[in-house]
Simulated assay, not measured.
Amino acid sequence: MRYRDKVKVKSPQQIKYMREAGLVVAAMHDALREAAIPGITTGELDQIARKVIKEYDAHSNFLGYHGFPAVVCISRNEEIVHGIPGSTKLAEGDLVKFDCGAYVVREGKQWHGDAAFAKLIGGDEKASEKARQLDQLTKESLHAAIVSLAKGAKTLAAVGDAVEDTVALRAFDWGWEAGIIEEYVGHGIGNAMHESPDVYNYRVRGKLTTLKPGMVFAIEPMLTAGEADNHTLADGWTVVTDDNSWACQWEHTVAIMPSGVWVLTAHDGGASILEPAGLSPVALG
């Protein structure tokens, strides 16, 4: 969907509702990050995430979405996204991506949050150098995109520009270039998990959405340590790389605010992301 598609602008109160949902997602991340150790199954981790949603009196926006059977997507190693939790056990050195979502109901409407993080199981020292670099690069790409928006980017093209520039810089530093997944992109978010417009993780020619305060986007670069070609497994959900290279995903829900941004799915509102660039989140009381 291009810039001509209508983008829903949220009021300050509506952004506060989305912040509530974002904090539920942040709590899911906390619980999963702590529990994701060698030997635990992805199905057990899904149950942990369900408990967090229940504790916050929130709702899952993943469960039942087009038939998806869980509240979190857990994707290992060569799995890029949409991995279905089950009997698979995590092992030392795995690069695991946790994509979580939740919504709250306020004023009779749903308000959504969506974010993902990656973890090297057993700690960085148990992972290969390339896995560590891929994780670092994907996270850096997300942060670079958020900083670009916070600095006053005029259009959503800034996201793809930031991701490509970060990938190119690290390719120069490390001697290998990550693949950028183009089939799966970020999106607008609000009363539904997926709203207009698409948020591209690669450089796009032509005019994209002009940014205005009150717009909210889920920004989620997905990179690979090899080629970007991919396919979906027979389960109809799990997306894997064609060459079996490992993949990574990081994501946050970000609100465009007057003179900055507010990272709704980060406990600190994005302070740790923005401070290295001399910026601070623009939060509502």
Rank of each mutant, 00 (worst) to 15 (best):
M222F: 12
A228L: 06
L134I: 09
D94Q: 10
I84E: 06
A218E: 11
T241D: 02
K10Y: 15
L211D: 01
V96E: 02
T224K: 07
D124I: 11
V147K: 03
D94W: 02
D165L: 12
Q110K: 15
K97F: 01
D242A: 13
E129V: 15
V167F: 08
G285T: 12
D235M: 08
L95Q: 04
A118Y: 01
E220W: 06
M18A: 07
G236D: 06
V239C: 08
H112L: 03
M215E: 13
K207D: 12
V254G: 01
T241V: 05
P276R: 03
D229T: 14
P258F: 07
E275M: 12
R50H: 09
A27P: 00
L149W: 05
I84H: 05
P281M: 00
A283D: 00
H82F: 15
P38S: 12
M215W: 03
G175E: 02
L137R: 07
Y200N: 12
E183R: 15
R205I: 04
R132D: 07
D57R: 15
G206L: 07
F68D: 03
K126L: 06
K10E: 08
G260Q: 07
G270L: 07
T155R: 10
E78V: 08
F117P: 01
V163T: 05
S128Q: 04
V163S: 03
I84S: 05
Y56D: 09
K126T: 13
A21M: 07
D135E: 14
G270M: 06
H29W: 10
K130I: 14
A271M: 10
G206S: 09
D57M: 12
L63N: 01
R132H: 11
K51F: 02
C248V: 08
A26D: 06
K109S: 10
H143Q: 14
G64V: 11
K16H: 09
T42D: 08
T241H: 03
V204S: 07
V72T: 13
